[in-house]
Amino acid sequence: MSALAVAHPRRVHLRPVPDLPAEAPVTVTISVSPGAAPGRDRVLAALRELVAVAGGTVTAVETAPAAPEQQGIRLDPRARTALRDGERLDLSRLEYDLLLFLARHPRQVFSRSQLLAQVWGHTHTTNRTVDVHVSRLRTKLDDPEVVTTVYGLGYRLADEAAVTVTEG
């Protein structure tokens, strides 16, 4: 039996496969996704060594075409991740929940009391709590206009805010 290498950025798994006829040349093309994934060079070196031990040659190391650049903010509720232009955002639980709630209700204005009830799940804190979290969220998003203040009423997601929620 020979081995098939299944690569992961942090490890290489070897899975048995039936032996190939000895006279058949083994040619391998390695495709990698673009970007500097941790351990990429180590995985490539292990794959090259494995192919060499099997008596084969690596014909090419191809870089797969880059995915289209993700513009704006993408929220994935299942993974609870927030990405801006493909880069991970470091949001607290409440900052994430606040942004997700506003993104799921575009063009709707919510009072501070409504946000406390819907996002925090209670109204036992002061309305100032909402103001502080909105301020921190704006700072972390590096865009003070993503969440719009509707004076005298509350907050809403800006019409031009590029925030997408990936459901499913």
Rank of each mutant, 00 (worst) to 15 (best):
A46Q: 12
L83V: 10
V53H: 13
T27Y: 01
G152T: 11
L89R: 03
H8S: 14
R40D: 07
V28Q: 08
S31E: 06
V119T: 10
S2N: 12
A60G: 10
P34C: 08
W120Y: 10
G39A: 02
G152Y: 11
A7T: 07
I30Y: 05
T81D: 08
L94D: 06
A45R: 15
R93T: 10
T166I: 15
P21K: 09
P65E: 15
T27I: 03
G39V: 06
H122K: 12
G35M: 09
R48S: 10
L4N: 12
L75M: 02
D76A: 10
L157I: 11
L98M: 12
G121V: 08
G72W: 05
F110C: 08
R88I: 00
V163Y: 00
Q114M: 07
L100A: 14
H124L: 12
E23C: 03
D76N: 15
A46D: 14
Q71Y: 00
D142Q: 13
V28E: 13
L91E: 06
I73C: 07
A52M: 06
S33V: 08
V150R: 14
A60I: 04
D41P: 00
V6H: 05
N127R: 14
S31V: 15
P9A: 09
S92V: 01
D142W: 00
H105F: 05
R40M: 15
R84V: 00
L20W: 03
W120H: 09
E95W: 02
S92N: 03
H8L: 11
A24Q: 12
V165Y: 04
Q70V: 13
L94F: 11
L99G: 06
P34E: 11
V12A: 08
R80D: 01
T59S: 13
V134Q: 05
A24W: 06
R104S: 02
V17K: 13
